[in-house]
Write a protein that binds this DNA or RNA. Sequence first.
DNA 1: CCAGTATTCCAATGAATATTGGAATACTAT
DNA 2: ATAGTATTCCAATATTCATTGGAATACTGG
Lengths: 215, 215
Amino acid sequence: MNRDAYAHVARIGKAISSGNRLELLELLAQAEQSVDSLSRLSGMGVTTVSAHLQVLKGAGLVRTRRDGTRIHYRLAGPEVAGLFVAMKNMAARVLPGLSAIDGEKDSGSGRDDSVPLIRTIEEIREAYMLDVRPAHEYQAGHYPGAASIPLDGLASRIGEVPRDRRVIVYCRGEFCLLARDAARLMRGQGIDAYAMDEGVLEWRASGDVDLTATA
Amino acid sequence: MNRDAYAHVARIGKAISSGNRLELLELLAQAEQSVDSLSRLSGMGVTTVSAHLQVLKGAGLVRTRRDGTRIHYRLAGPEVAGLFVAMKNMAARVLPGLSAIDGEKDSGSGRDDSVPLIRTIEEIREAYMLDVRPAHEYQAGHYPGAASIPLDGLASRIGEVPRDRRVIVYCRGEFCLLARDAARLMRGQGIDAYAMDEGVLEWRASGDVDLTATA
DNA sequence: CCAGTATTCCAATGAATATTGGAATACTAT
DNA sequence: ATAGTATTCCAATATTCATTGGAATACTGG
């Protein structure tokens, strides 16, 4: 028969059947990244990351570019982000009780209830959009008009955030906690801050938002 | 962190990371099926099928219905077929050289070159649409107006096929070989037969075709 | 060429998975 | 109740996979 056909498609499935690899894909959806940059961002060992990247590459989901001594990985295309989101949606639809994000929002330690989530893009008008991802990721593509203050430096740069407007913070995507942490920090300082429930991963997947890059 | 979020989505990935499970999903996209029906159709052992179904159920991709002594499995929803197709497309886009279907069509033994494939739904008008899947699957949903002659009985019922019209055969989906085998058989008898390159799986996934069911 | 850095390859270990046969369970029909 | 059928559970085996440390490779800058 054509047994191979299924096995062949299953390779894509295998590539996305590991939580660690999904985390790497989410990072790659932000910007191209070198192996050790991914290692630092994810906390996995370098050789572990390399091994996972080989699997992703073998399945055709990522491409590489050599720049001197280091190798930069990137998504093979926006459809890969699309597949991630499709799986995320499927998980939410089909295992609602266990929804990872709900778990994070509701059950968890409960402290996240203090950060209201913005769910529609309409609410963005007139608000101050703030990107709290690392500068490198901001440069590779960000929401049009958004400002950049990486979470690292937010405490010391808090003065740059306007106090007379609503502030909406976003980060890598629904699973990323940077925006929520940032919003919590700002609320503690009396700023009217909200965390966006989606981020660059979802925008890249949908293609609806044109993510401006900086030179 | 929210490590669990990724692990949780990865469960969906794991469920579709096995060729055998994909084959089962394709069968379930046709109609609900009992465990041993799936075992017979797929050639896997009953306990093996049962184990795979448990995995699919654990990931929330299939549901069960008890009917007396036997248990019928079905897809949790059309989105599951959608995910299958999304992965199939990703595989075709991203690993073009290895495309399972291309492999089947072109390289293989080459004999399949004898069966022209219909690729657009436009060509269906005025043709005689023939469904060669098992009767049970036809009853659960088929292309509007299509006739049913399961491949098993096609040789003996060949007289029912009109000789003055173009005949278009379809089956379960792109990976299913029933339609191509049927078309080859009919061409051998001088019938102007073509195999459809998509089938019920894709139609169910897209939702564009309304698959009529018989009482 | 040499030292230094980034990445991959290799080997080894432990964990998870697939498959199978046999026992256990759940239901039907007599 | 009893026999019969369909399915799942359990245990065992072989296979595959994830992770890690150390060696090998590929490149850069003196």
